[in-house]
Each structure stands twice: as C-alpha cells, then as structure tokens.
Amino acid sequence: MNETTVKLIALGLYLVLGPVLGCLLGGIDRKISARMQSRIGPPILQPWYDFRKLLLKENLVVRRSQNFYVFFYLLFMVFTGGLFFMGGDLLLVVFSLTLASIFMVLGAYKASSPYSFLGAERELLQIMAYEPMLLLVIVGLYMITGSFSVTDILAFDCTADTAKIHAPVILQGAGLFLGLIYILTIKLRKSPFDLSSSHHAHQELVRGLTTEFSGRAMAAIELAHWYETVLVLGLVYLFLGSCWWLAVPVVLLVFFLELVADNTCSRVKWQMAVKSSWIMAVIFGVGNVLVLQYWKPILQMFGK
C-alpha cells in the first residue's frame, strides 16, 4: 500500500469512526460522571439519542444567518481532524482549529443575545488561554523530532537507525505533555474551565455560547464536539505514538482524569483560567522548550 492510500484510509476511518468514538466517549463521560455523583446515569448511547432527537426538532433562530456560522464550524472542525489524521502539518492543524472555533464564536455573536454574547466573549478568553500552550507543544514536538508533520512525529520513536538513538518523545517533552493535559480541560469543556459552555446545570452561565442554537444547528455543534474530542485526544496520543498499547491506555487515563477534574472542581473565573493556563504555558511549555534548546545533549545522553 502506498502512502497516499494509507492517508486516505486514515481520513475515511476518521470521518466515519471519529464521531462514533466521540459519541461513545461522551456517553461514557456521562455514565462515569453520574456514578461519581452517586447516580445511575443515562445509557451509554444517550448522546446519540439526543443527537437524533435534535435533528427532528424545529429550527428556532434569533437571527436568520446565525446557523451558517455553525455549519462552517462543523465543516472546519471535520477538516482540521482530517488534516491531523492524514498526518498533516501540526501548525496548520492548529490554525484550522482556530478558524473553526472562530466561526462558532462569530455565530454566537451573531445571535446577539446577552447569554450567547457572554459565552462568545468567554470562549475567546478560553482560546486565548489555551493557544500559547498548544502552539508551544507543537514547537516542542518540532524541536524534538525535527518535523511538524504528524506522520514524522509518530515515526520518530521507531527509527531503526541506532546511530541516532534518542530519548522518546514523551521523555523529552514531558513538560509539554503536562501542559497539554492542563489545557485539554478547556478544549473538552470541563470544569473548572467550562466558562463559555458547560453541561453542569448548576453554573451561573450554562450554555452561554450555544444558548440560541437549537434543532439541527445544535446537533451540528454536538457532532463537531465529538470530532473535536477525538482530535484533541489524538494530540495526546502523539506523545506515545510509537507503541499503541501504551498510548491507548494513557489517552483513556487522561480522559478519565479530565472527568475527575470535572466532577471535583468548581468553575473558576476567567481571570484564573487565563492566568493559570499561561503560567502553565510558561513553566511547562517555555520551560521544556528551553531545555530542548540548551540541554538537548543531556537529554540525548539520557536516552542512551
């Protein structure tokens, strides 16, 4: 099989299995969360039932063009994931992800209700909070592996060339990994950083960003979130890409930790969200980049 075929198969699998996986993870999330709160919880397939029902609902809007933005949010989210799973350039993946998020934010602005407006403003703050760390992860991965491409990064640890032996990505980029996990909470819309939109009914602003969306538009947002969940977990996977039997449990563990955080932390103010994410980015992101820049020889020795 040549490279292009592999890429196309990966794309196809992502397009079909991505949302299935995202949906299942969503169901598991709700089940585990319920158990943590001493409830029985809905069936694992509840997100799917919700999704189907949303499709049947009437399309209510405040502003006639607001749903167009949601459609492009979904489109670019799928595009971003496709880019990632086809082994594309990570910087491009982040830029495309940002574009997708911006469409969602603009849709919320367009809806022009106080709640969606507040959600949009907070979503922007959240993007501002996580983006430095996300970019630093990519910078770091590039410094470790010498490439921005997902394919190359995955192949890095498996290099057969013994002359170029090196510490595995996860060791060289341990700080980046921790930083990534921290901002993952924002991306997965989990407490304490579920400021713009949340699934906890007790918050002061529950569905800020998505307040004014219903029916098919809401279903599209859910679908995009499933794709997004798989994509960001894919980023975590990247750190251990060479051995899937280690990577998969680690990814699931990380996901579980996010659920623990979600159920044990109360929402913080945006100040705290931005400040703490940036501090993490400076300590773990910049710190790790510094190490890679100046102490790479030591790291390489460590690898031997």
Binding site: Y109, L135, L136, V139, V286, V289
Partner: peptide
C-alpha cells in the same frame, strides 16, 4: 526557539481583539 514565545503569546491575544471587533459588527 525562545523568540517564538513572543509570537505564541502575542498571537493568542491578537485573536481576541480582532474577533471581538468582528463580533461587534455582526
């Protein structure tokens, strides 16, 4: 690579001030 830190943080903020302006127009 350390110079990238400026770009990384600066760009994140750039996004905020442009999008909130775009939103205002919409």
């Amino acid at each position: 690579a350390l110079l990238v830190v400026f770009v990384v943080f600066g760009s994140a903020v750039t996004l905020l001030f442009w999008v909130k302006w775009m939103g205002k127009l919409l």
